[in-house]
């Protein structure tokens, strides 16, 4: 009797992933001289990482979104078959250059002082839109995750838009990984990774960025169930107020729509509820966060 050798592929490898990479191209950040990492070096690390992701599984998909100062745009999408694998990098760099020039033209009118923040809220939303489209494409789609390679400081004026993007990612179970390459921690990204269950990491040695990317951020969602990835030491939960976009840890909250204000207002600017008089005479002023709407 013939006996066939039976070896089933016992590990059902469902590690097909869709990686959305948000690359910070803010010229004000990259021009700061104290950067340990130049933009070209940074790009070579990232390109190697993209290549390695595409190498790991032929169904893997990578989409790169450039986060500029004034705009953001799709720079590369591996699912569009027009690009041969050996021309991948050329094509990406070319598109990136076009993007940076266009982004620069947009900013000429305004004069920025210091390092401005880049448009993270825009690129996060674009990534989420793309993911939604993939979700609707059919029952078999790769598992999406977002990786923010971010260096610019947080822009408090984007607080609401970013938080909305984060909650939308949380709802659709898309983890946001953040790799902070700037000098300071980013409170936005800390919250984003914390809320969506992603990994937040600020590499100590930026010249070994690829090793960080390959060790931590290349881990697909399937393998994350079995591995211990870096956990955040602390998360900065501070919010920005809606009126002056300041980062505050104490303030006034509209009891109807939960909008945050640093000062007392007569009327909520978001939902229009009319507030009563603030009680200024109480000694424990720190507990004066509550407001009652005057109906």
């Amino acid at each position: 009797m013939l006996l066939f050798l039976v070896i089933f592929d016992s590990v059902i490898a469902d590690d097909v992933s869709l990686l959305m990479v948000l690359v910070d191209t803010n010229p004000f950040f990259w021009s700061t001289t104290n950067n340990a990492l130049s933009f070209s070096k940074f790009l070579s690390h990232v390109l190697a990482f993209l290549n390695s992701t595409l190498l790991l599984n032929q169904l893997n998909q990578v989409v790169v979104i450039a986060t500029g100062f004034n705009s953001c745009d799709y720079v590369y999408d591996s699912s569009s078959n027009s690009v041969a694998p050996n021309q991948r990098t050329e094509r990406l760099l070319q598109k990136l250059e076009e993007f940076v020039i266009k982004d620069e033209q947009l900013s000429k009118e305004e004069s920025a002082d210091g390092i401005g923040s880049s448009l993270l809220s825009g690129s996060l939303s674009m990534a989420l839109c793309y993911i939604q489209r993939v979700f609707r494409s059919g029952p078999l789609h790769p598992q999406p995750r977002i990786l923010c390679l971010h260096g610019s400081p947080d822009g408090p004026q984007q607080y609401v838009a970013i938080m909305n993007a984060i909650f939308s990612a949380q709802r659709s179970m898309v983890p946001i990984d953040s790799c902070v390459i700037g000098a300071q921690h980013s409170a936005f990204l800390q919250q984003a990774s914390y809320i969506t269950g992603g990994v937040y990491l600020k590499p100590q040695q930026l010249d070994g960025l690829f090793q960080y990317l390959a060790t931590v951020f290349a881990t697909d969602l399937h393998s994350r169930n079995f591995l211990q990835l870096p956990k955040p030491v602390g998360v900065d939960f501070r919010a920005s107020c809606f009126c002056h976009k300041n980062t505050i840890d104490m303030g006034y909250i509209c009891s109807v729509c939960l909008s945050i204000f640093c000062k007392h207002h007569k009327k909520c600017s978001t939902c229009g509820s009319v507030f009563g008089q603030a009680q200024t005479n109480a000694p424990s002023t720190s507990k004066q966060k509550r407001k009652s709407p005057d109906t």
Partner: peptide
């Protein structure tokens, strides 16, 4: 998947 990750991790 895990093996792929190890290879990548040890690549350099």
């Amino acid at each position: 998947p895990l093996a792929k990750k190890y290879v990548l991790q040890m690549l350099y």
